[in-house]
Design a protein around this nucleic acid. Structure first.
Lengths: 138, 138
DNA sequence: GCCAATATGCTTGTACGCAAGTATTATGTT
DNA sequence: AACATAATACTTGCGTACAAGCATATTGGC
């Protein structure tokens, strides 16, 4: 087997290509690739705790702390304590965050179409299904 | 479109799953996931320059500097100047590096089989082909 | 031979990704 | 009420990723 044929290598490089493509667009909103995705998840479901967000985005809690720090610093979100359980902190979108969330949602639709423009329907379905299977089997 | 359906997200999470799987094995040799792949590429083709290695592995030169620093510190490789072009530096595997390269090559075969054990031949071919197409279209 | 353009490798600064560990708070058992 | 256990978010340390910029060395056009 050649090194280039390693499935882990191929997955990593395909992912890198996707992230670079996405970053080019979302950076226009002042967000990184990961920040854009997190805002997008919050846009679907505002005021989640960081552990809920971590499960959905598959981001480590240590990673998420930093991501939220930077989003809070830039004014997209706010941390709010839950009076009923003082361990738990909910992440609230600010007005700026909600507006960004709208734009990210549109951008994401467009970027997905653009990225997959050379894939026909059955190829796209196969790709998504195989990636999902990879994720489960890992 | 839901956030989970974003192709960039799906690619990143599939790649993460692969990297975690690979890391579990290669870390037994005292290597990280990326270091293992770099050693594997050097095992195929020793004494490359870092720019050649960067092209093949699709690693940024800044990233590669750090990776090689750590591999050199751990005694797997050595940097050697080329007398004919003093800008160029070749990365030589040490004896320890060659032995690790052998083991990494075996481990990579085994890990690829194990990771893809639930994929039949046509699924595996489709996955690799689609990932390659993703990389090109990015 | 001279000089601009190019190539090579490195450094710095910012942002994930993850293992390991901490502090605080909640919960279940007795 | 007292205690061990668990959950939540955070911190630290290390290792990629990548943009931007630097120093050095080579090359092509004149």
């Amino acid at each position: 087997m050649k090194a280039e044929e390693c499935i882990f290598f191929q997955l990593a490089k395909a992912s890198q290509a996707g992230t670079r493509f996405w970053l080019k667009r979302v950076s226009l909103l002042g967000l990184t690739a990961v920040q854009g995705v997190v805002i997008r998840f919050l846009h679907d479901n505002d005021r989640q705790t960081s552990s809920e967000l971590g499960k959905k985005t598959d981001l480590d809690s240590a990673t998420l702390t930093g991501v939220i720090d930077r989003l809070e610093g830039a004014g997209f979100v706010q941390r709010r304590q839950n009076p009923d359980d003082r361990r738990s902190i909910r992440i609230h979108l600010t007005e700026k965050g909600r507006e960004a969330g709208e734009k990210v949602a549109e951008l994401m639709e467009e970027a997905n179409r653009a990225f997959l423009k050379d894939f026909n329907v059955s190829e796209e379905v196969a790709l998504r299904s195989l990636l999902s299977k990879v994720r489960e089997s890992g």
